[in-house]
Write a protein that binds this DNA or RNA. Sequence first.
DNA 1: GAGTCGTGGGA
DNA 2: TTCCCAAGACT
Length: 292
Amino acid sequence: MDTVAALHRPVLAWYSASARSLPWRAGDASAWAVMVSEFMLQQTPVKRVLPVYEEWLRRWPTPEALAKEPAGEAVRAWGRLGYPRRALRLHAAATAITEQHAGEVPRDHAQLLALPGVGEYTAAAVASFAFRQRHAVLDTNVRRVFARAVTGQEYPANATTAAERRTAATLLPDDPETAATWAVAVMELGALVCTARTPDCVRCPIAGGCAWRQAGSPPWEGPARRGQSYEGTDRQVRGKLLAVLRDAPGPVTQAQLDAVWADGVQRARALDGLVTDGLVEPVAAGVYRLPG
DNA sequence: GAGTCGTGGGA
DNA sequence: TTCCCAAGACT
C-alpha cells in the first residue's frame, strides 16, 4: 500500500528534525541503559525520570553492578518516581541477566519478555531501540497516534486490541534499522505533537492524512477512561509509609510509621501489602527496613 | 478483563 | 483549584 509507505517519510523526517536529545538515545547508550530508562518511563514523565536515570547509570553502569546490591538500595535510589515495585523488578531483572545471561542484556525478544517487569511493550522497546530489531512498539503514544491518524478516533481503547497490533505490524517498515527509527519516531510524535489533551496538529507532519482530522476531529465517544482516584487510597498510604523507609538511613520503628496515617486499619493493610510485595522487610517486633 | 499499583506537574 | 494523565506490568 502506497498510503502506508507515504506515512514513513514525513514522520521520519520530522523525527530527524525534532527529536529530543535524551541520554538513553545517545549513540553510546548501552542496552542496559535503554532497559533502565524503559522501566523508569513506565507511566512516568521524561522530565522526572532524567535525574534518577543519570544517578542510576552512574552508580550501576551494568546489570551485575546492580545485582550485587541489596534490593532495598534500588528501592531507595528509585526516589519518588512512583510505582516502586518497578525498582524491585529492575533489580530482579539485573539478577536474572547476571545469572542467566552472563551479565548481558539478552537480544532475543522472548528472553527479554521472560525478565521480571518486562512486558509486551518493554520487550519490544529494548529489542528495537537497543538492538535495532524490527518490532512493533505499542505504547500509549503510538496507540494514540494510530487511533487518530489511522482509525479516526480521538483516543484508543483502554486495552490494546488485536486490531491495533495488526495496524502497527502493517505500518512497520521492512528494513530493521528503519523500523527501529520509525518506532521511536511515532512515539516521539505522540509525546510532542499528537498529545492526549491538546494535539498540535499545525506542527504534525501527517495532519494532511489524519483520519481523525478529516472526520472533523470528533470527540471521543467510547467508554469513559477510568479515572485514577488517589486521595485516601491504600496507594497513598503505601507511598507515605515507604517514604519514611526511604528517607531513613536504617530500620524504622512502628511509631515512625504510625505517624504518617491516622487510620490504623488501613495503615496496617498498606504495610502488610508492602511486606507482601517485598518492598518492606520486618526485622523484629515493630521494626521495619527496606529489603536486604 | 477489570483492579491495583505512586507521584507530581501542566492545562 | 481541580482534574487529567505520563515510554505498563501483573494478578
